[in-house]
């Protein structure tokens, strides 16, 4: 337990020390590049904004991700069960996924003008549903026919087969995709927060740091974002251990 927490903490400390040393070595003033020792002051001055912004970023990311899970899973099910649907949807989804989402921010902002929360959640969803849909689809369509046959031979309904076999069997793939999706959703949220005027959340705080040339503040936001990202990621890992822990093999 000590090792499992100690090793990553040490790695983070080493990273911060390297960063500090790099800035010190080059003699960069903090309007060129902030160093870790500048950050506590920034957190101290703006802690209320950090808390508020952090919360706004967090809930909108989670909301977008939740929608992505529902829609992605449904799309994945459709593609997993129907060949026709798979052939029809796949190129469409791949194409949509290839579009840089930054280009959609102005479109979405104009479509739903002033609906900042809605836009942000929408972007978090748009950017993150793809890996979920694909992995659920692949998980279902590659289910070995024997798995289905042992229950079908007993006259089990499609719903029963899905509930007892296909769904649990797809969970490891689903959580694998969710780990990718959670960081993507996070990027989506911040994209809107940074790009759109009068934004909210940590992205907007970053933007105000940029406007005022406050490098320590900007870097403080980046570190806060990284920390939030880590928290979200490990929340997914915890869920995975709970619901799909059986897929983990003991190291041998």
């Amino acid at each position: 337990m000590l090792r499992r927490i100690g090793v990553p903490v040490l790695a983070i400390l080493a990273f911060l020390a390297l960063w500090e040393a790099l800035v010190w070595w080059n003699g960069w003033p903090n309007y060129v590049m902030a160093s870790p020792s500048d950050l506590p002051a920034a957190y101290g001055r703006f802690w209320e904004l950090f808390l508020l912004g952090g919360w706004q970023t967090l809930w909108r990311t989670v909301a977008g991700l939740a929608i992505a899970v529902v829609v992605g899973t449904l799309l994945g099910m459709v593609m997993g069960f129907s060949r026709v649907a798979r052939d029809a949807l796949y190129p469409l989804l791949v194409g949509f996924n290839a579009v840089p989402k930054a280009t959609l921010v102005p479109v979405v902002s104009l479509l739903f003008i002033g609906q900042h929360d809605f836009n942000t959640v929408l972007m978090a969803f748009l950017i993150s549903f793809f890996p979920i849909a694909v992995s659920v689809g692949i998980g279902l369509s590659t289910l070995e026919p024997e798995y289905r046959d042992i229950l079908r031979a007993l006259g089990a309904s499609r719903v029963t087969i899905f509930r007892k076999i296909a769904l649990p069997k797809t969970l490891p793939e689903f959580f694998g995709a969710l780990k990718v999706a959670v960081t993507l959703a996070f990027i989506g949220t911040n994209l809107v927060e940074i790009v759109s005027p009068h934004g909210k959340g940590l992205g907007a705080l970053f933007q105000s740091g940029a406007t005022n040339g406050d490098y320590p503040l900007m870097f403080a936001v980046l570190i806060a974002l990284a920390a939030l990202g880590i928290v979200l990621y490990y929340a997914v890992v915890t869920l995975e251990r709970t619901f799909a822990g059986w897929a983990e093999r003991e190291a041998t």
């Binding site: 024997e146 046959d149 042992i150 079908r152 007993l154 006259g155 649990p168």
Partner: peptide, 27 residues
């Protein structure tokens, strides 16, 4: 399909998330 048939394949297709007992109970 009818309920009076049992099937076994080359691949044992056991459900990895279930215990051996719960696998046997599935039918």
């Amino acid at each position: 399909p009818r309920k009076t048939v049992g099937m076994a394949f080359q691949n044992p297709v056991l459900l990895e998330w279930r215990t051996i007992l719960d696998n046997v109970l599935l039918p």
